[in-house]
Computed example of a mutant assay.
Amino acid sequence: MDLHRFFVKVGTADRIVTNYYQGGQIWTIRKLLKHKRLPESAIKSKIRDLPRLSEKVSRVLAAKRSGMYEMGIDWAFDKNGKLWILEVNSNHPQFHPLRKLDRTAYNRMRSFARSYGRCDA
Rank of each mutant, 00 (worst) to 15 (best):
D74C: 10
R59H: 06
K31V: 01
A13H: 03
T12W: 07
K44N: 08
M71D: 09
Q25L: 12
A113F: 00
F112H: 15
R5I: 00
N107M: 10
R103W: 03
K31C: 00
A62S: 15
T12C: 08
I26Q: 04
F77N: 00
H92T: 13
R108Q: 09
Y116M: 12
G11I: 05
D2M: 08
D120Q: 11
R37T: 07
V57Y: 04
D78C: 06
G81R: 14
L3W: 06
K31M: 00
A42E: 11
R15E: 07
K82C: 09
L3E: 05
F7P: 05
M68T: 11
R30Q: 09
W27T: 06
D14V: 13
N107E: 10
P93G: 02
K34C: 12
L33W: 00
D14E: 15
V88K: 05
T18F: 00
L61C: 02
G81M: 04
R114E: 04
L53T: 02
G81Y: 04
V60W: 06
S41G: 11
P97L: 02
M109D: 00
P39I: 14
H96T: 14
E40N: 13
R15T: 08
R108N: 02
P97F: 02
R30Y: 05
R48C: 07
P97Q: 03
R48A: 11
N91Y: 08
L32G: 00
R118K: 15
G11H: 11
I29W: 01
A113M: 13
W75R: 04
F7H: 14
L53E: 03
G23A: 02
M1C: 07
K36G: 03
D102T: 09
A63G: 13
S115R: 15
L38E: 13
H96R: 12
V57R: 01
M68V: 10
L61E: 06
R52H: 08
K56C: 03
T28G: 10
I47V: 14
R48D: 06
D78E: 12
H96W: 08
S66E: 12
R59S: 07
Y21M: 06
V57G: 05
K100H: 00
G67E: 04
L32H: 10
I29C: 09
K46Y: 14
S111H: 13
L32D: 00
R99V: 05
M68K: 15
T28M: 00
E87D: 13
N91C: 10
S115P: 10
T104H: 09
K9L: 04
G117T: 08
I16N: 14
A63W: 07
N19S: 13
S90P: 02
K36V: 00
L86Q: 13
I85L: 08
R37A: 12
F112G: 01
M109I: 15
Q25C: 04
R48W: 05
R30W: 03
A113S: 13
Y21I: 04
K64L: 11
H96Y: 11
N19A: 14
D2W: 08
L33A: 08
K36C: 10
F112W: 12
K44M: 09
